[in-house]
């Protein structure tokens, strides 16, 4: 009985990873590729680890698998954010069908400063980022 659940979990995890890989090949620019790869890839790893925890049915293995899942949930968004930010700042070309780019008028690529758009209203000085 538990073999069926483990098989279903493993197949679902592998399906998510294949979807992420297809997305990373087919989608047109960096943010959409990250949209496919980071979320679906993390989901695939999490489902695989859930299958491992269920298969061994041992408290030590389950604790390690849960620790791994928490680690993935903590690090995947941070890595995606950092790579997306670095990619935007190095001037990647966005897809031609992009309808919203809120950073375009706020971010100055020469001085590497990001304005919030509220500086003149409140009268505060422009806060400089490191």
């Amino acid at each position: 009985m538990s073999e069926i659940f483990v098989s279903i979990l493993l197949l679902a995890g592998a399906s998510f990873m294949v979807l992420a890989a297809i997305g990373i090949v087919r989608l047109p620019d960096l943010p959409t590729r990250m949209h496919a790869s980071t979320k679906a890839g993390a989901m695939g790893a999490i489902l695989t680890m859930a299958g491992v925890a269920l298969h061994f049915s041992d408290s030590a293995v389950a604790a390690r698998a849960i620790a791994f899942i928490v680690f993935i949930l903590l690090t995947a968004p941070i890595a995606a954010h950092v790579i997306g930010r670095a990619g935007y700042f190095t001037g990647i070309t966005l897809w031609s069908g992009t309808t919203k780019d809120e950073l375009r008028e706020r971010y100055d690529p020469d001085s590497h400063k990001l304005s919030s758009g509220l500086e003149n209203k409140t009268g505060r000085a422009v806060s400089s980022r490191d």
């Binding site: 990873m17 992420a20 890989a21 990373i24 960096l30 590729r33 990250m34 790869s37 980071t38 890839g41 890595a79 790579i83 997306g84 670095a86 990619g87 190095t90 990647i92």
Partner: peptide, 11 residues
Amino acid sequence: SLADRVVALEL
């Protein structure tokens, strides 16, 4: 770009 390659490496 290099950022695309980093995304692929992470996957």
